[in-house]
Amino acid sequence: MKTIPIIKRVGVNSGTGIAGTFLDEEFVFHYIAGGRWNFRMEDRMYRIAPGNIILLPPFMLHVVRPVDRRNLVQYVIHFELLEGLSDLQKLPMVVSIPLNEQKRIAGLFSQVKREWRSPEPGSDLISAGILTQFLGIYRRYSDDVPPSNPVNSSGWQNIERGIKFIHANYQRPGLTIGEVSRNAGQSMPYFCKLFKDYIGMPPLLYLNNYRISFAKELMINTASNLSEIAEKTGFSSIYTFSKVFKKISGECPSGWLEKAMR
């Protein structure tokens, strides 16, 4: 049994173009510090605003769309949940907190980020302790749930099956959208239309975006060369990988990596 939460990743996401469909393997704590989003989980659509906390369980598919062009800012912590806090899964996934707690979270977040990155002995315990404070704030205000609207779930389960199939098979170069649509239980033309309506992009573009996002992680965090990364992320050749990478990122892989490592 785990005795403390195990933090996997800490970061700040910001920008005017944060959007997408996400499926994380760990619990994810989101604190919204700026901007307004439409945030869909299961059959509910939430209008997310500063002061909201979102706690997502593992493998919860969610779709994020900005409401306007204002800068969006969220503090994010990925973690494995403490056994003794498993009852958090029974609480609402989105809560609102008062202004005094918002200021407290902003101050604590810089501490947890610093401690999580520190090589000093005991930093894991200190960062886990701060995360536990965040979870305590979330639990304290679990009755203060922001309004949400039901959304048409017709077809959503098919899209969800398709996305999970993509996530499980993106490393296969031979993966086709026809195969994805069959797994989702729909004809390819209808699946593509429904996918774009729900997710905001065609399924092939989603697949390529997903592959490139993993390729970027491998480029930064491993010693693999580009040919190896292309193979690991489902591209049939380094040429195809480079072409898709430039189309999505606006520059070639080597140019992107040089900027990312500065």
Rank of each mutant, 00 (worst) to 15 (best):
G35N: 05
L85R: 13
L85W: 10
S227K: 12
N209S: 11
H167T: 00
V67H: 03
P203D: 07
P92G: 07
G200C: 08
G15F: 04
S187M: 06
I48T: 12
L125E: 11
I220H: 03
N52C: 14
Q171G: 07
F235E: 04
S242C: 09
W256E: 06
M93I: 15
G15P: 04
R70Q: 13
T233M: 04
P150E: 10
L135H: 05
V244P: 02
R182M: 11
S154I: 13
V95K: 02
N38Q: 14
P173I: 06
S142L: 03
K232Y: 09
G84R: 11
P57L: 09
I166K: 00
K246T: 14
A19F: 12
S227H: 10
G155N: 03
N225M: 07
F191Y: 14
R65G: 02
W37H: 08
R44F: 10
R69I: 09
E217I: 10
A223M: 11
N169E: 07
T233C: 14
A260M: 12
M219K: 05
L135F: 01
G250E: 06
S154C: 09
S110K: 13
L72D: 05
G250I: 04
P66C: 02
K196N: 14
Y31K: 01
D143K: 13
L207F: 08
T16G: 13
M60T: 14
G107Q: 07
E251I: 09
N209F: 05
K193P: 01
V95T: 13
A230F: 02
E26R: 11
V112T: 12
N158Y: 05
Y31S: 01
W256T: 04
G136R: 12
V112I: 15
R139M: 01
E258P: 00
G11N: 08
P58D: 01
Q74S: 15
F235R: 01
F235T: 02
E228D: 14
N225L: 06
V244Q: 07
L218V: 06
F191P: 00
L61E: 02
T222Y: 02
V73E: 14
S249C: 15
Y141I: 05
S118Y: 04
I105Q: 05
T132C: 04
G185D: 08
Y46R: 09
R211N: 04
A19S: 15
K2V: 04
E251M: 15
G51K: 02
I238W: 02
H62V: 02
G174N: 14
R117G: 14
S213W: 01
Q111N: 12
G255Q: 09
F245P: 06
A260Y: 08
G136K: 13
D144T: 13
E26K: 11
R114F: 13
G234A: 05
P189R: 10
N208V: 14
